[in-house]
Design a protein around this nucleic acid. Structure first.
Lengths: 148, 148
DNA sequence: CTTTTTGCAAAGCGTTTGCATTGAA
DNA sequence: TTCAATGCAAACGCTTTGCAAAAAG
């Protein structure tokens, strides 16, 4: 079951590459598999470290460039952050973020009401809207404890 | 009227500094005045360039460090971005963002419905919420024209 | 065989740090 | 007079680029 899902994912990945004239390289496959295993928002370095065990020869550059390529073709999103390295989000479904101002951790959550938010008329007139996201800022339980 | 407002702002700025044991330096005042004149989301360099005309001796570092200090005491926000230099947001009122994926420009807008968004129960249970922001992604009119 | 991709190295850009000097309180 | 803030310069971290070698189609 899990295997089948993985295979399905890989197939759709291969399709996506072909439709963008990207070659299927072992590196790209490894990176693809890795980012869809993690539910976090990994940086290029995170991905590199995870992959490096199995692919000792892969270079950091390739990981970074591949992730940017993936972002280009819509396979991953780039998470906006205020500092530190760029983070990638393998979850391109409509979702929302809650992030802890103390530890900086970002968690995804899903909420239909948020997905269906009305876009104000004056914005709609001036923009073609691509996506809507609610970003909540707060302090997570763990940090709240350690702060007190 | 405008002058009075400026003076009021400056007074509240001085209060804020005092309450955080920050000294009132001409540099800080200049930076404060500058960022509240601009309605954009300036980077440290933008602010530096704007100020440099009137204060040729101010250093880029001071501008950058001061803006970070201002962020610490809640005088400005830091805008999350996916690339390029960090941008500061002098508007700490509740507001929302629409940003153009093509030119990267971010515009503020206000919307009461968005301000009053309900926070899902499971999030509320695990976080102390500090703020809510809706981030819309889209393509602005200008870019749409130049793309066609 | 052609064209893209990779890996490496260097350059680039923005941010951060250390420290002597300056200036606010 | 004291301690924080400034300005400068160097260090740092992450990102981007150029290019020769390797690999995909």
């Amino acid at each position: 079951m899990q295997l089948k899902k993985t295979q399905e994912c890989l197939d759709s990945f291969i399709e996506k590459c072909k439709s963008h004239n990207l070659k299927i390289t072992p590196q790209r496959c490894a990176i693809y598999k890795e980012i869809f295993k993690s539910l976090e928002h990994p940086s290029a370095e995170d991905v590199f470290n995870a992959i490096h065990k199995d692919y000792p020869n892969i270079s950091y550059d390739t990981v970074n460039r591949t992730l940017l390529t993936f972002a280009d073709i819509g396979l991953v999103d780039i998470v906006r952050s205020s500092s530190g390295p760029r983070r990638f989000d393998p979850n391109t479904e409509s979702h929302h973020h809650i992030y802890c101002v103390n530890c900086g951790e970002i968690f995804d959550f899903y909420n239909e009401d948020y997905d269906n938010l009305e876009v104000p008329g004056n914005i709609r007139d001036n923009y073609d809207i691509i996506s809507k996201r609610v970003v909540l800022k707060g302090v997570c339980k763990k940090c709240k404890k350690s702060m007190s």
